[in-house]
Each structure stands twice: as C-alpha cells, then as structure tokens.
Design a protein around this nucleic acid. Structure first.
Lengths: 250, 250
DNA sequence: TTAGCTATGTGAATGTTATTTACATTCACA
DNA sequence: TGTGAATGTAAATAACATTCACATAGCTAA
C-alpha cells in the first residue's frame, strides 16, 4: 500500500497543478461527511496526495480554507435564491415560496456549504468578504420581500419589507437547521420540511393580510396565478398543497 | 507561577473531591468563550487543577462531557420554558409570547448551553437520554400550542397543534441562531431579536385567525387579557409594542 | 484498628493535528 | 538558458485526545 503516494506523485509530478481547487473539493467532501468540526487540514492534504505542509501555500491556515468554502457557499446560495425568485414570476407569492423551498433545497443538497456557512462557528462578520457575500445572499430575500410588501392590500398597514425579509429568513433557517439536515431530520414529523416551511410562510403572509389564494381569506389583488411552471426541483409539487396550508397531504 | 499546581494540590489533597462538577463548570465557561469547537478537554482539566488524564475517570471522552452539558442544558431549557408558559396565565396568547421570549433569553443568557445543545454538531438522536431531554423541552412548546389550537376561532379550520408547535419552534430557533447570539447579532437590525420574534409570532397567529388584540383583525374570543404582569426579564416591555406588531418602536 | 477493595489521580507513553522552517523542484520568461 | 517566483517536501515544535501502569485516599468488613 505504501507505493500509493509515490505512484500518485509519479502520475502528477512534483507539482500538483491544481492543488487549491483540489483542496477545496476534498474539504467539501470531508465536511459533508464529518462536519466542519471534524474536518482536518491534514486529511484534505492527504486526500489531494500532497504533504501536510503543502496546503499552507494556498491558505493561511485551516480557517481560511473554511472561509473560502463559506464564501463560495454564499455565492452559490445567492445564485440559487436568485434563480428561484426568477424576478417574481409567475406571481410574487408563488415566486416567494419558491425561494423558501430553494433555501431548504440548498441546505439539504449542499450540506457542506451550509455547514461551513452557518454551523462552523466562523466569525462571519470578522471577514469583510464573507460578510459581503452573506449580505448579497440575504439581499435576494430582501428584494423579494420588497416586492411582496408593495403588494400589501389597500387598507392594511404596509409592513416594513426589511422586517418581512428577516422573518422569512428566520423561518427558513429555523426549519433548515432543525428539521432539514443531519440527525435531527430523522425526527418524525407530521409533514416534510418543505411542506412545513410552505405552510409557515403562507400562514405568515395571510397574517399580513396577503391573499394566499389557498386558504379561507382569499381575494386576489394580483393577476391570477399562471399555471405553475416547472420549478427548481425541490421535491414538492409546484403550487403547494391545495386545500390550504394544512390540508392533509394527499 | 509554577508553584500554582502544587499549591492547589496542597489545598485540596490528592483527590479533588468534586471533579466531575468542576469539569462541567470549567467546560461551560470555556464553551461560552470559545465555542464547543474550541473547547478542549485538556483545558478543562487544567482549569480544575488536575492532570489531563483525570477527566477520564468521569467521562468516557470529550464527547461525553459535551453530551452531559447538552443534557443539562435541555433540562434547564425545559424548566425555563415551563416557567415562562406558567400554565397559560394570564391568557394563552400572552403566555405563548412569553415562551418565545424565554427561548431567546435562554439562547442569549446561556450561550454555552445553547451552543452545546444546538451548535456543537452532537448527534442528538444517537444518545437516547439527550434525545429524550430534547423531546421534553419541545413538549412544553407543544403543550402550549395545544392550548392555543383549542382556542381557534369558531369558524376557521383548526390548525394541528403539532404543526403550530413546529412552526413556533422554527421561528424561535431561527431568530436565536441568526440574530440573537455571537457575531451575527451585531448585524444592524431594525429591531431587537425579541421584538422581531414577537412580531413574527403575532403575525403568524393572526394568519391562523387568532385574535391578537394588537392589530387590525381583533375580536377576542377569550376573556380580555389581564393587565400584563412582570414577565421573565427579557428586555422587552411586557405586552409588546402597542399599535400592532410593526408599530414603530418608541 | 486495619487489610484490602474501589474510586480517583498522576506521569509517561502513543498517535494525530496545526503550523513553521529550511531546503528542493519546477515554471515562466527575459 | 539562467534565474526568481511559485509550489512542494521533510523535519521539528507544540498542543491534544486517549491509554496504561502505578500511586493514593476513602471506606468497609473483619
């Protein structure tokens, strides 16, 4: 077995050629497996087939690797939220819910990124670049909330968009953290995390006086929703549960 | 400085006398400072004035210490939530909100416990005792939701209490995780985490058709709320913001 | 009281990790 | 083709987690 290292070296020569990227990928895999806490700099190096000191040519230290991953995570996160929002098509509420599902989907499908971003204990606001990336991702939610707020029913007081955005964010993050990942996900729930969040958001919006067209107080102030298009695959039939937020799932 | 160890030994003799508890306390302090990830078994031992091997007489390994802390945390958490709920006095909605504030207060005032419980990456459901303790804490929220659900307005469909409980839990957890602790708390918010959560819950309850007596759709189906009593000190004036969930904070 | 069992600590390994340092190998390019 | 910058390596240091053989103290039964 001890020839492995040499063989790999032979295959690729003294220089790796793409070590930085290889380390990021290795770390991503390790974090997905054992969490950011269990991830080890040495392991990543080993996985990339280089000595334990090599990574220091590309990252100041272990934390910088972690930060890089979180940074990249926020960027992909932003991209997915943006795609889900799709500029509010076909209608604001539908698109808004799609953003929520995208949030959960990201947490589920990219556990390593999500872990690095929200559960690694990284001092996000100590790193300006990270801070900014996180800000940009949040701004997608904020912009969506802005559009939603503008739709406030004529009579009702108009809720501050920022507050709405923070509320939605906290719901999505709460559901994702508690039910949509790792072991806690195994807790027996009466419904899937997606359904749970969807219902939560719908009830919340209704509490703000928005027409959600799927529950009791329905009176659309917006052009009627277009037949649902294929949404970013999130495992939930587009359009949600007919019959209100807590209609029994088929 | 090197006499410290001997002196301490002299003070207490060969046996510590209460090492297990001392280790738990030391760990609690260390986790509060540096997070569960940064906490070190050796440090705890040092802090308690014993050798690095001593702790193994009381805990199988570092993880078991962490689990013990999480366990104890869930117990205190349950106690605080129970006290906040106060069996639904003076009225169900008020008591329910108080539970929410207690959730945030715990996250804020017991960062070490909160960290061990929710952010340490401990496999909660791998440990039956932990699992059970966490369950018991959640049941306080669930019981409260049960009572709230029973109050559902006559005409409206009655929401499943379990779903409500999960929703409230996710809101509280989301706000606590994102805004009520550590560095992220420094994010400039338009309102305090307490106010944020209170508004969120009120809007949500209104969305379920509950009279929240502080917003537009008010028609109490319950004996009118008693003048607010002093609630568990949470920095928010008991009774919340008059003028609706998003009335401008004074 | 005391012999001896048990609980609790101690020091000295072992093996692993993070990180630094001095030195080696390549690459890019003047 | 000579050379400086970039990228790797091995070896060394220091801190941990964990284990093991041995030391002490507390307590109990004779």
């Amino acid at each position: 077995m001890s020839w492995r290292k040499e063989e790999r070296r032979a295959e690729r020569g003294y220089h790796h050629g793409n070590l930085k990227e290889a380390l990021l990928q290795a770390a991503l895999g390790l974090i997905a497996e054992k969490g950011a806490a269990g991830f080890t700099f040495a392991d990543a190096a080993r996985m990339a087939g280089v000595s334990a000191a090599a990574p220091y040519r590309h990252f100041r230290d272990r934390d910088e690797l972690l930060s890089s991953i979180a940074q990249r995570g926020f960027e992909q996160f932003e991209a997915r939220l943006t795609a889900a929002w799709d500029d509010g098509r076909p209608d604001t509420v539908t698109a808004f819910e799609r953003v929520g599902r995208a949030y959960l989907a990201f947490a589920r499908e990219e556990p390593a990124f999500y872990n690095a971003m929200f559960e690694s204990g990284l001092p996000v606001d100590a790193n300006p670049a990270l801070q900014a990336a996180s800000e940009r991702a949040f701004n997608v939610i904020r912009a969506a909330a802005e559009r939603l707020a503008a739709l406030a029913p004529p009579g009702a007081p108009r809720p501050p968009a920022m507050m709405m955005a923070l509320h939605i964010w906290s719901m999505a993050h709460g559901v994702a953290s508690l039910f949509s990942r790792g072991d806690a996900a195994r807790r027996k729930l009466p419904m899937s995390p997606d359904e749970l969040l969807e219902a939560e958001v719908l009830i919340y919006l209704r509490g703000l006086g928005f027409p959600t067209d799927r529950g009791p107080p329905a009176k659309s102030a917006e052009p009627p929703p277009v037949p649902p298009e294929a949404s970013s695959g999130s495992g939930v039939p587009p359009g949600g549960n007919p019959g209100g937020p807590w209609g029994k799932p088929k």
